[in-house]
Design a binder for these strands. Structure first.
Lengths: 337, 337
DNA sequence: TTGAAAGCGATACCAA
DNA sequence: TTGGTATCGCTTTCAA
């Protein structure tokens, strides 16, 4: 059933039905009611493909995120959920594209075949070929995270530099002098993953500023890796009394490693980092951390994208968030001699 | 740039370009190369909306999952990821629809506007209006989970009845006599959420069979609720020595409650349940559990849906999985007097 | 082996 | 306030 059918049954032209639906032209109250009755009767809904073809808009946004070579993190889940819901509020649907790089088939489809009106890019890298490609095409996109050239683009992100620095200062204030940094997997760092880089940066600089002794580690995105990593930390420097981590998925493993080594948190060892709130609360003791506001990030990203779609030549906008550290139960004064 | 442009530059007709692309009609090697050269030069890709309009297929499947009234679980994350990747392997894109019930706008759009060729339904209820509606329309869909009338449909699911029963038998074999069941939130149970019902069922029957003393609880999908629930369990019956849970998100809280009550796992108290493997490994001690094979479920669901799309009147198929219990470290012999 | 042209189902311009 | 019709970009039938 199509718009012609409706028109016929309502005894009007197809254009009138179209206008009655879109409201882009006034339609007499009487014909509008006539049309609406037929529509309700038949349960008619305009075909999305036809509409997209005719007016060039798909009412769909693409959410581009890398395939789980290893694992997705809980934060990503929260983020995806909030994007989908925020988009739904604007009557946009969300098309998922598991693409880590420009050349992924799915990414090519998204853009080349014009499947979406705009895109949100997750897991941004400092030099991101997806973002570069999009910018070159002037394709409406919002990145989650900042590339190395943030001024030119639309994005929402976390100030990882400030966040890890805040963690360091928190620990230093508690008297810790020898601390470790547990980063995301090495492969992500190597490929220029933004949060891994900026997080490491903030950690390193703040530690230098406070004159701390540090060691930094990369760690796989799973509990087993976390456990192994913790073992290495204590092996490399048994006098370590605290750590900062960006690696949410490894957190449970880090805790386990600590327990295994007989270090009590927070009495003998403090743990902190950058983790989504609800995941920080699943470990015991609950993690003192900068809570990643995944929902807010998702919402803001959608807001920005919708704005950009509505105003094609609005100047670039962005949001840099720096959530405060939530004091929970995993850090305490350094008790080492 | 469109197919006409390509045709003009290659000096052929639009239909020839179309056929060269689809291979549905033979094209001389020479013209094919000529066309391909132009396509490569211009980076042409056929417009998805136009193609969908013309041939009635969107090459998109819908993934319908309820909005996170409270929270998404890790298992859902793994599942979404595997669906997206499995679909990508068939060159299908995935459209997310945050719909819990038939009447959700996004669900209506999906179907009514023909945005997708088929759908995968998550979080199925025993009486599921979404599934019913889809079946009535004979719309290609695959459910994750069984409704009360599983024989009529296409689905992949877990045998929650058998799974929780296996957990009970495991505990009974270890000598536990007083055990608790920690279910998903009451609201989900009330609305007929399949796994909550069948899981409860399997638990109850197996416990009766073994002559155990049981109590069953509903619990919110978060750590705080888990902790509170555990407190209630021990308050209601301090002699409880084990629990079975379906509630992954509450797991960390259950553990914390146990620690707080001074019960050591697994010496004083055994914990088991149905949880995705990688989440079972984040807690300490690692959870002995029936590992939800989320990736496999996602892959199978896509396989089934693609099969159904390719063979519109193939008879219904389904997969009922019963993963074994993975012995880890959270259960042990009952040491109660 | 190829081309011409009729759809697919909307939108929106031009007339009336 | 309405109708007629060209148009969006592709697929596919019918002819040559």
């Amino acid at each position: 059933m199509n718009i012609g059918e409706i028109a016929k049954r309502a005894g009007v032209s197809r254009s009138t039905v179209s206008y009655a639906l879109s409201g882009k032209r006034s339609v007499s109250e009487e014909t509008r009611r006539k049309i609406q009755r037929v529509i309700d009767e038949l349960g008619y809904r305009p075909n999305a493909s036809a509409r997209a073809l005719a007016n060039g808009r798909t009412s769909t946004i693409g959410l581009v995120f890398p395939p789980a070579g290893n694992h997705y993190t809980g934060m990503q889940l929260d983020f995806i959920g909030s994007v989908v819901e925020a988009a739904a509020a604007f009557d946009y649907d969300v098309l998922l594209s598991p693409s880590g790089v420009d050349s992924d088939r799915s990414f090519q489809r998204l853009l080349g075949e014009r499947r979406v009106d705009g895109a949100i890019l997750m897991e941004i890298r400092l030099e991101d070929d997806r973002a570069a490609h999009l910018a070159e095409l002037d394709f409406p996109a919002v990145a989650i995270g900042r590339t190395a050239h943030p001024e030119r683009g639309w994005w929402v992100g976390l100030d990882h530099t400030a966040l890890t620095a805040a963690c360091v200062h928190h620990l230093a204030d508690l008297g810790h002098r020898r601390i470790a940094f547990v980063n995301r997997p090495e492969q992500l760092l190597r490929t220029g993953y933004e949060s891994a880089h900026r997080g490491l940066d903030g950690f390193t600089k703040a530690a230098a500023e406070r004159g701390l002794t540090v060691r930094t580690y990369c760690c796989g995105d799973d509990a087993a890796s976390g456990q192994a990593c913790l073992a290495r930390i204590l092996h490399d420097d048994p006098a370590t009394t605290a750590l900062v981590t960006l690696n949410e998925a490894a957190l449970g493993g880090l805790y386990r490693g600590l327990a295994q080594a007989g270090r009590h948190v927070p009495r003998d060892f403090s743990v902190t980092g950058v983790v989504a709130g609800r995941w920080a609360e699943t470990v015991t003791p609950q993690l003192t951390a900068a809570d990643v506001p995944a929902e807010e990030l998702g919402r803001l990203a959608v807001d920005l994208l919708v704005e950009r779609l509505d105003h094609p030549d609005a100047p670039p906008r962005h949001h840099l968030l720096t959530p405060p550290i939530s004091l929970r139960a995993s850090t305490g004064p350094c008790t080492a001699s």
